[in-house]
Design a protein around this nucleic acid. Structure first.
Lengths: 367, 367
DNA sequence: CGCGCTGTAGATAGCGCTAACATCCAGAGG
DNA sequence: CCTCTGGATGTTAGCGCTATCTACAGCGCG
């Protein structure tokens, strides 16, 4: 009774085996695989049963070659392969969102790194596109702002979506958060706690969202009619060390110290916190510190950091959805704003009376 | 004078164009691409010049289909796509190492997630292997210890290397660090500073390296003839919260507190640090804290964490090298140990006299 | 001078799939 | 009874490469 034939020198089951087993042509099996409409329901069911039974999985390379689709989405990050700067949780989260959506839609995500600052970036991208022939591309910041790369992708007719670019202009879909509003909200949070001298640690000003975050800080001050003090705005570079130096400048600079510091990202906030600890300041009693991003570290600091949460993973998901829509030919909404959320932990509180007093005292000393 | 022909409706340059331009057959071009030995030097140079000039890049899908090689290395992490636990810097670092070596060797890395705890894991892996047909696989822990998956890969004849598995047995290459020796070294570091009551925060004991790290701690105590005190060994789970609870047990448990805590990983160490801060202890004056892994967070804590550095990236590189050797047919060394390195930062110091005295006093009170 | 050998190159035949066209057949409409 | 239509299937060709076989020139050797 047992079936023989079953060649099976290797474990490879091809479409031909399915066709033979279910008594239809290769083409019909292919149609079932591709959810083509013109297949009789009975046939579809029968073929699918055989597919499941044989554990058949179509060979991607063969499909790609013929169908001129690869079922790959390339996720591009900035950075030479050996360098790799930046926040790992950002990378992992964005990646997770993209992978999740890819898998759900039968795609795979190819994570690649590209250094937009080198002249060969365009060549690398071209080679990548030609080799892999991805059906779409998701550009992580700051690649998402590289006009050169965008132009190249357009020229190659590769659909793409951008995550948090400098500008949301252009026809291609964009996923972003409202950095300005979020930053304003955080600043207003500190203001509403009673803080009036709020230090601000900038990000690198080439990054457009650094600029927007600072704009939000200023807008909040204006709205609350608090005079902006230039000395309270200090440069930073999104690194721990930068944050530490910024805090040193704010807290040890001979001026009346701020009662709160708002750092443009969590890593700089961690630096501020370290400096505060070193000076023997109690956070939040003597000094409030707030961050931005709600990354992995925010919960591991002492005290846990009040920060602005943006769902990076959601951005990954959305960007992928956009690309998939472009591939399908439907027009996605051009710009999607992802919600942000203020996460209040223990690094912020109302300024202590003592601190206010001390500040006022030193303010008297200085003039 | 200008050349015509040049069809070029699309930007796709095929091997045929190169062949025509350089006046050889397709096959010769292919041989040049594949670094086949039997090509005359002059021909090779000529063809390569044309390749560069046309910007030709071979189409991966087509190559794969015919050559039965995919030039993909799959890097598999534990975790359902939507869940994603664990330390992002581990993921990013391992990935960086793998990608780096892949790119250097003309391969691409496909990062995938697989949940070994579900019954469908094997099916998922099989589908992945059939679809993608990776030439090799790198298994990150704890997948690297899943006998089921290993057996499947063996059955499918897919070369693989394992990172930090439970056991280094088996024919396949393995990359690991000597957790026991590293842990012993860290413990001896604390002993040599003068600590005698050293708390130990365990990792999850299903993870074999948790077991080895504890063994190292014990070995150090034995070597220094310090009596092991069971109450100083507390459970943990590699999380921040677990570390915090462990520290609470060690520091607030009514027994003479340890002068140092060695946590099995940085994240638990961060938890211990938070608890210490909360109790108003000064680290390292009142309490030394050491971690393990030297992840991203270690430098962002206050004080910066003394920890055991293992180059995850190097493990990624090595594992990839091993797989590439298997693919080439050469036999790699079966087990590669990656160096570890004690990184002394500011969270450890000699126990303060006051602390020792306090400890002795409370020791007198207790009996 | 024929023989085999080696190094170089071309010709041929697909890899496993699917686009595009061809075919078939039932049922509607004349 | 013959078209015509359109859904369900089959047939053919070939995507861009490379494994494999074949061709042939040049050379040494007995």
């Amino acid at each position: 009774m047992k079936r023989r034939k079953k060649s099976s020198r290797r474990t490879t089951v091809t479409i031909r085996h399915v066709a033979e087993q279910s008594g239809v042509s290769l083409m019909t099996v292919s149609r079932v695989l591709n959810e083509s409409p013109n297949v009789a329901e009975a046939t579809r069911v029968r073929v699918q049963k055989v597919i499941a039974q044989l554990g058949f999985v179509p060979h991607r390379a063969a499909r790609s070659l013929r169908a001129r689709r690869s079922w790959w989405i390339a996720l591009l990050f900035q950075g030479a392969a050996r360098e790799l700067r930046g926040d790992p949780s950002y990378v992992v989260e964005l990646q997770a969102g993209v992978i999740e959506r890819c898998v759900e839609n039968g795609y795979h995500a190819a994570v690649e790194r590209l250094d937009a600052s080198t002249p060969i970036a365009a060549t690398q991208l071209r080679e990548l596109v030609q080799q892999l022939a991805p059906d779409g591309v998701v550009l992580a910041p700051p690649l998402s702002s590289s006009e050169e790369l965008l132009a190249l992708l357009r020229a190659l007719h590769v659909p793409f979506a951008r995550v948090a670019p400098r500008s949301t202009d252009g026809d291609e879909p964009v996923v972003f958060i409202d950095d300005r509003a979020a930053s304003r909200q955080m600043t207003e949070h500190l203001l509403s706690l009673g803080h009036r001298r709020i230090g601000f640690v900038q990000g690198p000003m080439q990054r457009s969202y650094s600029v927007r975050r600072m704009a939000g800080y200023r807008a909040a001050l204006r709205a609350w009619k608090v005079r902006e003090e230039p000395a309270l705005i200090v440069p930073g570079d999104f690194t721990f060390e930068g944050g530490r130096m910024a805090a040193a400048q704010l807290l040890g600079g001979g001026m009346p110290p701020p009662t709160a510091i708002f750092a443009s990202n969590d890593e700089s906030a961690a630096g501020c916190l370290a400096d505060a600890h070193q000076r023997g300041l109690r956070v939040p009693r003597d000094l409030s510190i707030a961050g931005f991003d709600d990354t992995y570290v925010a919960t591991m600091l002492y005290p846990p950091l009040t920060t602005m949460s943006q769902s990076i993973r959601e951005m990954g998901r959305m960007a992928t959805d956009q690309v998939l829509q472009l591939i399908k030919g439907t027009t996605p909404s051009q710009a999607i704003r992802i919600e942000h959320r203020l996460v209040e932990r223990q690094s912020t509180a109302a300024p202590a009376v003592a601190a206010v007093a001390a500040q006022e005292k030193s303010a008297q000393q200085v003039p």
